[in-house]
Simulated scan of single mutants.
Amino acid sequence: MKEVTVNQLVFKKSLSIIEQMKLKDFMFKWLDRPEEGIDDILPLEYTQSVFAKMETPSDTNFMTEGDETLRYVTLTEDNQIVIGVLDANDELKFRILYLEDY
Rank of each mutant, 00 (worst) to 15 (best):
8 Q>E: 15
58 S>D: 14
81 I>R: 12
59 D>V: 03
12 K>H: 02
63 M>Q: 14
45 E>R: 09
16 S>W: 09
61 N>R: 09
82 V>D: 03
65 E>I: 07
96 I>M: 09
87 D>M: 05
99 L>G: 00
12 K>E: 07
87 D>H: 06
48 Q>T: 13
99 L>I: 04
38 I>L: 13
99 L>D: 03
92 L>S: 11
95 R>F: 15
12 K>Q: 11
64 T>H: 04
15 L>D: 00
55 E>S: 12
60 T>V: 15
25 D>A: 04
95 R>E: 14
35 E>S: 12
97 L>D: 05
71 R>G: 06
17 I>C: 13
10 V>F: 02
92 L>E: 15
27 M>H: 05
96 I>E: 00
62 F>H: 05
80 Q>D: 14
56 T>R: 02
2 K>C: 08
66 G>T: 04
65 E>H: 06
41 I>V: 14
93 K>F: 07
24 K>G: 10
84 G>D: 06
84 G>R: 00
24 K>M: 08
29 K>S: 11
50 V>N: 09
2 K>R: 14
44 L>H: 00
84 G>E: 06
20 Q>W: 00
31 L>N: 04
101 D>T: 08
68 E>R: 15
97 L>K: 07
61 N>G: 10
95 R>Q: 13
15 L>W: 02
39 D>Y: 01
75 L>M: 07
27 M>W: 04
50 V>Y: 06
90 D>K: 14
42 L>G: 08
38 I>T: 04
17 I>W: 10
32 D>P: 02
98 Y>E: 14
